[in-house]
Write a protein that binds this DNA or RNA. Structure first.
Length: 433
DNA sequence: TCTGGGGTCCTAGGACCC
DNA sequence: TCTGGGGTCCTAGGACCC
């Protein structure tokens, strides 16, 4: 075993440059050279081409603001099917050089190239160069790449020069890069921790890396001790190999405009979210044993409830049944609501033979047949061809449908919001802020 | 950084048990 | 009604990521 004397790894991080906008341009080359922005369906920019960035367009900027800055901008709705396709092609190109790929997100992946010099008959650097070249030319967009000794430092590399950068950071040069990187820019160090560290006199990543491990242990929790290790060149975070198909939780959240006091409308919004969450659940052959729902007021306060289901389920009716009466206990008359959401937790795979599933094979079979039909109709005619009566009111509101139309009706429903940094917490029974 | 949406992991502290 | 300590499991909430 090699666990005792560790050898340097060769970890690659690949990051698509303004990925969504680049996919749109790759798909439609007539857009090349233009200011392209995606996120039309939300009313705010989610990705923009460098031409748009050069004109001052930033993430989460309102479309009206963008048009003012840049009247000839092309604004497109997000097209996740296309982005996923390009994403898969990205993984496959990297996979030519190693089977050890982590499909980290739609526009990023990690690859462990360690030990592949002999089979590939080239150095790690040559592999990085070839991978980048193949990605750029075959996909028609640019990628930024980092090559280093672990995931955290490979990420520093891919961020070092953008767009279209390739940065190699050997272990013995790490300090040169860390010295020029603010601690808050390190993967896994967020605003809380970086301002805390700043107060302790830690400004750069090198300041942090050179602290004693005992000091770090004393001041911070485990994830940060691990980051500290990686910044010192150790390999701590393994790559998560293979396709992502199991989930710890599945959630669906939607903000609707305008906010409403109408109980049946709010409930139908929730119903729609539950339906969509269940579609995803079934797509992955999963069943949920726990569900949390919440409604969010105009003042961003949450009312939530959580229930454990006696049986694992994957159809919305059962969840709705369980939720319906309880909904009344959290819904406050006269309060304006702006969003609803559902989180399905405690998920189990359908081929896991558990007692409660076993007893329900008959039902599951029946429901499965119905929903197979529903899901296939939805696939053919659009996601919302068939929906529950309880979702009806929500279906009449086109605000967030991903259609490419641009009716005035759509326009008036476009979200006025900006981006949120805060993750939605799900407080247990009652309110927080 | 004033409010999208979808995830993951960790930890402190309470409940409960011996 | 005071006094000890240790272990495990669970949950709410925090922090972070894309």
């Amino acid at each position: 075993m090699l666990t005792h004397h560790s050898f340097p790894r060769a970890i690659l991080h690949v990051d698509g440059d303004c990925f969504f906008a680049s996919c749109e341009i790759a798909k439609n080359p007539a857009l090349r050279g233009r200011a392209v922005v995606t996120g039309k369906e939300r009313g705010i920019a989610s990705s923009m081409s460098y031409e748009a960035k050069a004109r001052g367009v930033t993430r989460a900027m309102k479309l009206s603001e963008i048009k003012r800055l840049c009247p000839d901008v092309i604004i497109l709705p997000s097209d996740y099917e296309t982005y996923s396709l390009y994403s898969k092609r990205m993984y496959e190109i990297v996979r030519r050089y190693t089977p050890d790929i982590e499909e980290y997100s739609i526009d990023e992946c990690f690859a462990d190239l360690t030990g592949m010099r002999r089979p590939n008959k080239m150095s790690y650097e040559q592999m990085a160069i070839k991978i980048k070249h193949e990605l750029d030319t075959e996909l028609g967009m640019t990628f930024s790449i980092g090559l280093s000794v672990n995931k955290v430092t490979a990420k520093i590399g891919s961020k070092w020069r953008k767009p279209s950068g390739l940065t190699i950071i050997p272990g013995h040069d790490l300090h040169l890069y860390l010295n020029r990187t603010l601690i808050g820019k390190i993967w896994g160090i967020g605003p809380q921790t970086s301002s805390y560290l700043n107060k302790l006199g830690v400004i750069t990543a090198l300041d942090f890396a050179t602290k004693d491990p005992d000091w770090v242990k004393d001041k911070l929790s485990k994830p940060f001790q691990e980051i500290h290790q990686e910044l010192n060149g150790r390999f701590v975070y393994p790559l998560v190999l293979g396709e992502k198909n199991d989930y710890a939780s599945i959630s669906k959240t939607r903000t609707f405009t305008p906010p409403s006091k109408d109980k049946s409308l709010v409930f139908s919004q929730l119903s729609k979210n539950i339906e969509n969450a269940c579609i995803k659940l079934r797509r992955h052959n999963l069943f949920a044993k726990e569900v949390a729902i919440f409604i969010k007021t105009q003042e961003f306060r949450y009312q939530a409830l959580e229930l454990k289901l006696s049986q694992a389920i994957s159809i919305p009716q059962e969840i709705l049944e369980a939720v319906r009466e309880k909904f009344d206990s959290i819904f406050k008359v006269g309060t304006l609501y702006r969003a609803t959401g559902v989180v399905l937790m405690n998920l189990i795979h359908s081929d896991t033979r558990t007692i409660d599933l076993f007893n329900r094979y008959e039902l599951i079979d029946k429901v499965k047949k119905i929903y197979e039909a529903v899901d296939s109709l939805s696939a053919r005619y659009g996601k919302h061809t068939i929906f529950l009566g309880s979702s009806f009111k929500a279906m009449n509101e086109p605000a967030h449908k991903n259609d490419r139309g641009d009716s005035s009706e759509r326009r008036k429903n476009i979200l006025k919001g900006e981006s949120a940094r805060k993750r939605l917490g799900i407080p247990y029974l009652g309110e927080t802020h």
